[in-house]
């Protein structure tokens, strides 16, 4: 069974998900990778009172509440009318955001973090506390995922951060992913590593 999820996602929808479940995402979410995560935490979270980029703060609060963050540095093309199109948009490795992600999840009430390769214990704990999930997109499925991006709604910080690092706010339809860290404290990444280690020991004696 494939869980159809549309942003914003509710706590009940999140708790119904378990590791190994396949999901299909629709609605508006944003990309964010290394520079964007550092910016979010330093500008809005680890500060007494946000003082700069306040308009963007309001926009992001709205997109991220119940929303999704996609770890992706897309290949984009600009159309003649100036609007943008995603050409190739597979996931990038997520673990680099482990130092920021738990704070981002808690501060903005993010429900789904999407990437590749899994994340660590702090994100897993934030998932449990905040009712959120980590979803794995399929590495290398760049054309298919770009095809699921139906519209670039907005782009923020493109000139400052560069194309791969900008916040690309996108409307997706039937974006395929798999729950690999759920809100119940389970991580496929930990389970598979442990199981394959046992197998390895059995095989090499």
């Amino acid at each position: 069974m494939i869980h159809e999820l549309t942003f914003p996602i509710s706590d009940d929808e999140i708790t119904a998900l378990h590791v190994g479940d396949q999901v299909s995402l629709s609605g508006v979410m944003t990309t964010a990778r290394d520079t964007a995560h550092k910016f979010l935490v330093e500008t809005y979270i680890r500060t007494d009172e946000p003082k700069q980029d306040l308009e963007l703060y309001e926009e992001l609060k709205e997109i991220l509440a119940g929303g999704g963050i996609y770890h992706c540095g897309p290949v984009v093309a600009q159309k003649e009318d100036g609007s943008w199109r995603f050409v190739a948009a597979g996931p990038t490795t997520s673990i680099r955001e482990e130092v920021y992600e738990p704070e981002v999840i808690r501060h903005f009430d993010v429900k789904a973090v999407i990437g590749k390769g899994g994340m660590g214990p702090n994100t897993l704990r934030a998932n449990q506390e905040q009712k959120a999930v980590y979803l794995s997109a399929i590495g290398g499925a760049a054309s298919l995922i770009a095809d699921a991006v139906k519209e670039v709604v907005a782009v923020y910080k493109k000139d400052e951060f560069g194309v791969p690092e900008a916040f690309w706010v996108i409307r997706v339809e039937s974006f395929p992913a798999v729950v690999t860290m759920d809100a119940h404290g389970r991580s496929i990444h930990d389970d598979v590593e442990e199981k394959s280690k046992k197998q390895l020991i059995g095989l090499i004696g």
Partner: peptide, 19 residues
């Protein structure tokens, strides 16, 4: 998903993977 992506890349003549 991988197989769908391969078919789509071939049809559109776009990269199978962005890397």
């Amino acid at each position: 998903t991988i197989l769908q992506n391969v078919a789509l890349a071939r049809e559109q003549s776009t990269p199978v993977c962005q890397d």
